[in-house]
C-alpha cells in the first residue's frame, strides 16, 4: 500500500496518523507541505527515523526544492520526481491520501 501525505507534521497530525496506521512493508510518499516530514533537524525527525524500520519513506523532489529544503533530506529517504510518484502508484496495489 502507498500512503501519500501532503501536510507538514509540524502543523497537522496527518503524518503521525499515517505512520500509526501504515502496515509493515508499505510506502509513504511525502508531497507538498508534507516534505517537511522528510527533513533533518526538526523535532519530528526521530519519529520518521523510527518508522523507517517498517516502512519506506519517499519525498517528492520538486516540492522539496521549491521550499529550499533539498539539502536537508533525512538519510535513507528516497527522493523521487513526478514520474517516480507515478511509478510508486503503479507498484502498490492501492493508495490512501492522508488529507
Amino acid at each position: 500500500m502507498l500512503h501519500i501525505v501532503n501536510k507538514s507534521p509540524y502543523e497537522r497530525n496527518s503524518l503521525e496518523s499515517c505512520l500509526r496506521l501504515a502496515t509493515n512493508g508499505s510506502a509513504v510518499l511525502l508531497i507538498e507541505d508534507g516534505i517537511y516530514g522528510a527533513t533533518k533537524g526538526g523535532s519530528f525527525e526521530g519519529k520518521v527515523q523510527a518508522a523507517m524500520a517498517g516502512v519506506k519513506i519517499y519525498v517528492l523532489g520538486p516540492d522539496l526544492s521549491a521550499r529550499g529544503m533539498a539539502d536537508r533530506v533525512i538519510d535513507g529517504v528516497n527522493v523521487v520526481d513526478y514520474g517516480g510518484f507515478v511509478d510508486l502508484v503503479a507498484e502498490h496495489s492501492n493508495c490512501q491520501s492522508w488529507l
Binding site: 501532503n6 508531497i31 507538498e32 507541505d33 520538486p62 516540492d63 520526481d81 513526478y82 514520474g83 510518484f85 507515478v86 511509478d87 502508484v89 503503479a90
Partner: peptide, 19 residues
C-alpha cells in the same frame, strides 16, 4: 491549495509514462 498543481503534474507524468 497545491492540490490541483500536484494532480496536474501527476497526470502529465502518468501520460508520459504511457499510462
Amino acid at each position: 491549495h497545491e492540490a490541483s498543481d500536484s494532480a496536474y503534474q501527476f497526470t502529465k507524468a502518468a501520460i508520459e509514462k504511457g499510462h
